[in-house]
Design a protein around this nucleic acid. Structure first.
Ligand code: MN
Ligand code: MN
Ligand code: ZN
Ligand code: ZN
Lengths: 145, 145
DNA sequence: TCGATACTTTAGATTATATCTAATTTGAAA
DNA sequence: TTTCAAATTAGATATAATCTAAAGTATCGA
């Protein structure tokens, strides 16, 4: 996603393309990891323009509301964020907690009526297990052997 | 799940069945909601035995480690907990954030090789949309009309 | 161009959530 | 009983997120 595309996506969501907001969005689109607010804060403040902590949080809130970014559902202390580029699922490692992207495939939704009066918008899959790195190790990290 | 069953499940996980630990487990098994640590704290302290905040957190940690309780993957400030009774999926409301149980059905897992070198343990399905209550309302809550 | 106005950013204070510490208490086994 | 690891506790501390009030900035119409 190039600079112009980011600018357009912000403006078509009714958000001004301020330098600080752009920086958050640009950083997120360039990441396949799932950074926390603190990590985003650090990253955008390594280059101009600098942003205050409140601005990082304000912009993340605005971007999530606008549907350009999602807050990833995962356990753990700090919220993690993800630019909504191409649809994908997530793999969460039982051991190291890393959240990795997995190519999207359409999930066989529930049978009609299964969800009662609820209105379904989407089905998201979360895979759990060991990531490639953790799979290749024999011994759990906490083991003293 | 009756008292004896809870006691057995704790002990077969190598955990002492202390009054405080039992109280947390008993409360969680009786809930279809997904309470936060603060809600559990409040609930168990309405009856004896009382537990300190640290004990609630200690026991939740122990129960999650033992596999008797899971921390629910959902957005939002405080972690939510769920006794692992019968398997089920979750429906998360876009609007009010409520996490509701949905009967389990087996998810068509990814094709072999899809996940590369990762080791898959389970597929969890998260449905998103509007819960029954929010579906029946016309106007979004923030609208000023 | 000018002023009005709404949007945005900011530092620091505040609140909310979770963990740590060090001193007891408890309970099962010897 | 005595012993000792496990568990509990109050309060301190750490971490994450939000709030506040003041100042800065873009946009619009006159
Ligand atoms: Mn992702
Ligand atoms: Mn549940
Ligand atoms: Zn891993
Ligand atoms: Zn709802």
């Amino acid at each position: 996603m190039d600079a112009e595309a980011i600018k357009r996506s912000l403006e078509s969501s009714g958000l001004r393309c301020t330098p600080q907001r752009y920086a958050v969005m640009a950083f997120l689109t360039g990441q396949s990891r799932h950074p926390t607010a603190a990590e985003i804060f650090e990253a955008v403040n390594r280059v101009d323009p600098r942003s205050s902590r409140a601005t990082i949080y304000n912009n993340l809130r605005d971007l999530v509301e606008a549907g350009l970014v999602r807050e990833v559902a995962a356990e753990g202390r700090a919220a993690r964020f993800d630019a909504k580029g191409t649809r994908h699922h997530h793999f969460i490692c039982d051991r190291c907690g890393k959240v990795e992207d997995v190519d999207w495939y359409d999930v066989s939704g529930p049978a009609p009526g299964y969800l009662g009066k609820r209105t379904l918008r989407e089905c998201e899959l979360i895979f759990r297990g060991l990531c490639a790195k953790c799979s290749s190790r024999r011994v759990p990290p906490r083991s003293s052997s």
